[in-house]
């Protein structure tokens, strides 16, 4: 399928009006969103992610500039037209009791139903399809208030699907979810973008996941404004590290992911390879110990074999006990030598 530009932002400035006048939050945004793609909006708290998202969904008027949605300016859409073009999933928790999942997903059909809100056979089919796409058939009869956060989020995504809009905006859909649920929701969104050719745009704080799964990343920051690109390009040209540079966080060019920068104060020799050796390495890094592969006179050494870990030829059955022994060594000599020497 051809990728087409669905949303085009021209010199957009976001912000809000109040009694004191106009506050501009982000200026000069020029960017596009494409169908068939999952785009993630990343940025620190207070960067203006929510304001941008609210502006794109027409909850807030733009301060300046234009938003073109499917070749037509956003301001020219009527409420009911817009409800067939943009579907939203928000962070606010629904305060409804006694409404079944089925009924809630059915609410997504409101823009298409008549005066009384009655659903016809076609509406029912669309709802069924949305429910099965998101994989929540087993929740159908359940009441909203009995669902977990992850389940509720899926129901809201199904609602947005039932709305049959080419564009779906999501405001931090993975917030408050456990890790597997975060992954599940992200994968679901990517699948929807791919299979249904929808334009999916979400704000998120889940950097790692976004970098692995998003087609495009929008980086938003108060001082740098908006930067757009694929996760890979942004990694290579250093934009990622600029945006998220903090004490104690390193951007790993090799994996294109972030990792915690440990303060390395000691060295030790590590013999062995494979995942076990990597895990030992990771554990040591946590204690501020870096590893080298060569033997050096005066340096302690760890050997990793199939079933055991050896510190100076003494066996340990788990990484935990091994680390304990190493840390003991470090504490004994701390402040005397930067090397782990015998």
């Amino acid at each position: 399928m051809m990728k087409e530009e669905t949303i085009h932002l021209i010199n957009l400035a976001t912000g809000y009006h109040d009694k004191k006048g106009t506050t501009v939050i982000t200026n000069n945004i020029n960017a596009c969103l494409y169908n068939g793609e999952l785009t993630c909006l990343l940025g620190p708290n207070g960067a203006g992610k929510s304001t941008l998202l609210k502006t794109l969904t027409a909850f807030l008027p733009p301060v300046r500039g234009e938003i073109i949605i499917e070749h037509k300016p956003l301001c020219e859409y009527s409420d009911s037209e817009l409800s067939r073009v943009i579907g939203v999933v928000l962070t606010e928790k629904l305060a409804i009791n006694n409404m079944s999942v089925d009924e809630l997903v059915g609410m997504g059909r409101s823009p298409y139903t008549g005066f009384w809100g009655r659903m016809d056979n076609h509406d029912r089919e669309v709802v069924d399809e949305a429910i099965s796409l998101v994989g929540i058939e087993h929740l159908r009869g359940r009441m909203i208030q009995t669902l977990s956060d992850g389940e509720r989020q899926k129901v809201m995504i199904a609602k947005a699907l039932a709305q049959e809009t080419p564009i779906i905006f999501l405001d931090e859909p993975t917030a408050f979810l456990d890790y597997p649920s975060k992954v599940e929701i992200m994968q679901l969104l990517q699948k929807l973008a791919r299979d249904r050719n929808k334009t999916v745009f979400q704000s998120t704080h889940d950097l790692e996941l976004a970098l692995q799964i998003a087609d495009k990343i929008w980086l938003l920051d108060k001082s740098h404004g908006l930067t757009v690109g694929s996760p890979e390009d942004l990694s290579l040209n250093g934009d990622m590290s600029v945006y998220f540079h903090r004490e104690g966080v390193d951007f790993d060019m090799e994996t294109g992911l972030f990792r915690i920068a440990h303060d390395m104060r000691h060295r030790i020799t590590l013999e062995g390879s494979g995942s076990r050796a990597n895990m030992v390495k990771k554990g040591l890094a946590r204690h501020g110990i870096t590893t080298i592969s060569e033997h050096e006179p005066g340096l302690h050494f760890i050997k990793v074999e199939r079933d055991n870990y050896y510190l100076d030829n003494k066996p340990y059955s788990s990484i935990d006990t091994l680390l304990e022994a190493v840390v003991n060594l470090v504490n004994k000599i701390d402040g005397i030598d930067t090397k782990l020497s015998t």
């Binding site: 909850f59 409420d79 943009i86 928000l90 823009p111």
Partner: peptide, 8 residues
Amino acid sequence: SYARNLGL
């Protein structure tokens, strides 16, 4: 917000 998004 949801109501508005659904055209109300």
